[in-house]
């Protein structure tokens, strides 16, 4: 389990310097922590969050986007038609509702999250015991491919 503050420190150490996103229950403490470390642009929807992050990336920053898996569908449009067309690197931190028992609205999208990311060609790593290694692998992939990479955070991935 990752302490949300230490997780955000790790992002900053790896060069992340701006954050955008849409809130979610699993990622709420990480979003609160990231705002102490860098600018956070609160967004209305996940496609907007990806686009703002991508604009910052075009102008030289390494961005992180916080979202919940229920909003991945909105994010996929710019991920597939902007980031993966031009090669614009962004890190996605996705709260993974519905990986195991969860509310009904999360069961379908939670069960299919990994399959959707793989169909889209987006590299993904799950936050667990070795969370620092997962962050570094995702960052390395994002930079080497100049493409989006995702960190998946199930319940328990962040300290409560």
């Amino acid at each position: 389990m990752a302490d949300p503050g230490k997780f955000c420190d790790k992002l900053a150490e790896n060069g992340i310097s701006i954050a955008t996103g849409v809130p979610g229950s699993i990622i709420k403490k990480a979003i609160a922590s990231v705002q102490d470390r860098m600018e956070y642009v609160a967004c209305n929807r996940e496609d907007e969050a990806v686009a703002i992050a991508s604009g910052a990336a075009l102008a030289g920053k390494l961005p992180v986007v916080f979202l919940q898996n229920s909003g991945l569908g909105y994010a996929l449009s710019p991920l597939l038609t902007l980031n993966m067309v031009y090669g614009i690197p962004i890190l996605l931190v996705i709260g993974w509702r519905g990986r195991s028992r969860d509310a009904p609205e999360h069961r379908v999208s939670g069960k299919r999250l990994v399959a959707v990311l793989e169909a889209a060609g987006i590299s993904h790593y799950t936050l667990g015991k070795g969370w620092k290694a997962a962050v570094e692998k995702a960052m390395a992939k994002m930079k080497s491919k100049s493409a989006p990479a995702a960190l998946l955070v199930p319940w328990g991935g962040f300290d409560e």
Binding site: E39, V41, G55, A57, A59, T81
Partner: peptide, 22 residues
């Protein structure tokens, strides 16, 4: 000039992100 080819609707959001870093 950044010519957006896909991602319809998001030109002003991309531009806002650019303004955050330039």
């Amino acid at each position: 000039n950044f010519y957006m080819l896909g991602s319809m609707g998001l030109a002003s959001s991309i531009a806002l992100g650019v303004s955050k870093a330039s």
